[in-house]
Each structure stands twice: as structure tokens, then as C-alpha cells.
Write a protein that binds this DNA or RNA. Structure first.
Lengths: 156, 156
DNA sequence: CAAAGATAGGTGTATATACTCTCATTTATG
DNA sequence: CATAAATGAGAGTATATACACCTATCTTTG
């Protein structure tokens, strides 16, 4: 009688390795990313803004006018991803882009409606952020931020 | 002469808040998720497996046979997302699903080709994982994992 | 200054993610 | 036992993400 998959030494080895993979740095960060994104998205729900869009508007507020490539670098995000994300913001009237002096570039700015939308979402974000920092405790939260920056620096 | 956007008290306040938003737990985790996903995807490139697919195969190895909802819960992932992710794995012949005794459920299993693909990617994953743990140092890496689990627990 | 190289950006394609709605099946209830 | 409530899963839609490839513009170099 042949061994079933679950009984082979091969499977036993694979299963042991697979359990080890549960400490994957990437897997754990991706899981946390899913959970936190849902948590913040829910908190911002009534503003009709997603947390990813909130982050973009915050960056535009600080850095406008800025080119797509420059903004992508600040967000450590692929340039073409940012192009698509910004398309949504532009369709909603929260951001716009005009050609720069260098005709190859597009200078991004936030619109008055974008400012208003960002301002509307700020207290909702603050509430969510407070829940997370209180849940972890200030010390562990600071530690998490530091470690995340370190892991980004170590793999960029 | 009217004030430009950048000169209004309103803008100054928004800019100050936007800078504060750079400590957003969600934003920092999402950024780390992008960076780590690219890093691990690049490491797994020659196996033609993405890190997300590697995680799914690892989970199937451990838990098969398992229903979609049960697996989604283990991954802290939306059920409908998992349905779509698994569709890709099934098209590539690495996983399959059959109806369970309860005719509403679909029982997921990994195929021999799925085992082979997972096994092929293991050394590539190990190398990437070692680079991250060495880059951070064992102590900080352990600390990061603990904090990520805490933040997931605090917001789930 | 014209041609080669470099740079900024967009498009095609594929995958990942989740919410809402719908359908099929199962379980609970009268 | 028939109907209502609950449950498991898929489809429609929208957004996020990035790689490979392409085009337009600018800069460098002969």
C-alpha cells in the first residue's frame, strides 16, 4: 500500500519548513498591513477617504508642487503605482497635475477640495491612531516604528 | 493681494498635521510591506513564485485539507481575496479544491507540482529571510515580530 | 548643431486586496 | 416536515501594487 502524501518523509520535511516560514518577515508585515489597512479604512469610512488616499493627500500638502517620481521616492513606492493612485485622486477632484518647465515632468498639487477632504478626515485618523498607540503602549509603538524604518533601510 | 494657499493659516495648520501623519502606524507598515514584498519577490524571481504565493503554499502544506474560510481566518485575510489568490494557484496547477461533505464548502489541497514548486523556492526564501534577520540583528528582528503580532491583536 | 544617450512619464498586463450583493446549502424552528 | 435563519462561497466593482515596454523630451557629445 503506497504512502499518502501526508505520510511521506518528503511531506514531513516540507511541513516542518512551512511552519518555519511562519516567522517570515514579509508575511508578518503583510498580515499587519492588511489588518491595519482595514482598521484605518473603517475609521475613515464616513469621510469617503481610504487611508492610502489620506497618506497621498498628506504628502501633497507638505511637498506640493512635486513630480511623480519625486513623490514616489518619498513614499518608497513604484512610480507607475503612484500614477494609478493619483488618477483616482484626480478623478475625484482632490489633486491635479500640470506640465512643469521640463515638459517631461508633471507637477502635482492638491486642490482646495483636496484640502477640505483631508481636513475632514484628520480627526478620524487621529482617533484610529490613538487606538493603536494606546493598544500597544507608547514605548512599544515607538519601538515598532523604529524597527519598521530599520527593516525598510535594510532592504532598500 | 490674496494670500496663496501656502501662506494661509489654514495651510500652515494642515501642513503641521500632515507632518504628524508621517508617524501613522498604517502608513509605516504599508511602506514596509511594499519594500519587503519587492525584496522577497526579487529573491524568489527565478522560481517564478511570488512571496504571497509562497505563503499560501506553505499554509496549504501545513493545513490541507482546509476550507477557504478557515484558511482566510488563519491568514487574517478577507475570504473573497483568498478565493481570487487561490484561483491563480489553481490555474498554475499548484493547488486544487473539491467539494466537501458539506456541499457548501470547498476543501483546498496542494498538488504534487505545488509541493515541488514550494520546495524549489525554500532555499531562495531562506536566503532572503537571512538577509533581513542579519540586517536587523536577531534581537531586533524578534522584537519586530512580537510588535507586529501585538498590533494585529490590538486591531483585529 | 545633429545624433546618441539619459530621463520623466504612461500603458499593457498580472496579481493582491476587500466590500457588497447574490446563490446554494445547511441548520434551526414552528 | 416546511419554512425561516444561518452559513459558505462566488461575482461585480473598485483600488493598490509593480514589472516590462514604449514615447516624448532633455542633455551630452562628436
Amino acid at each position: 500500500m503506497p504512502l499518502s502524501n501526508k505520510e511521506t518523509p518528503e511531506h514531513a520535511w516540507l511541513e516542518r519548513v512551512a511552519k518555519g516560514a511562519q516567522v517570515c518577515a514579509c508575511g508578518n508585515v503583510r498580515r499587519a498591513s492588511r489588518v491595519l489597512t482595514q482598521f484605518y479604512d473603517e475609521a475613515l469610512r464616513e469621510s469617503n477617504l481610504r487611508i492610502s488616499q489620506f497618506h497621498l493627500l498628506a504628502r501633497l500638502t507638505i511637498h506640493e508642487p512635486i513630480t511623480i517620481s519625486q513623490l514616489a521616492e518619498k513614499l518608497v513606492m513604484d512610480r507607475t503605482t503612484l500614477t494609478r493612485d493619483l488618477k483616482v485622486l484626480q478623478e475625484k477632484g482632490w489633486a491635479k497635475s500640470v506640465a512643469g518647465v521640463d515638459q517631461r515632468t508633471r507637477l502635482l498639487t492638491i486642490t482646495p477640495q483636496g484640502y477640505a477632504k483631508f481636513k475632514e478626515a484628520v480627526p478620524l485618523w487621529e482617533k484610529a491612531q490613538a487606538q493603536v498607540t494606546n493598544g500597544l503602549g507608547s514605548e512599544r509603538f515607538q519601538s515598532l516604528l523604529v524597527h519598521l524604518k530599520e527593516v525598510v533601510a535594510a532592504t532598500t
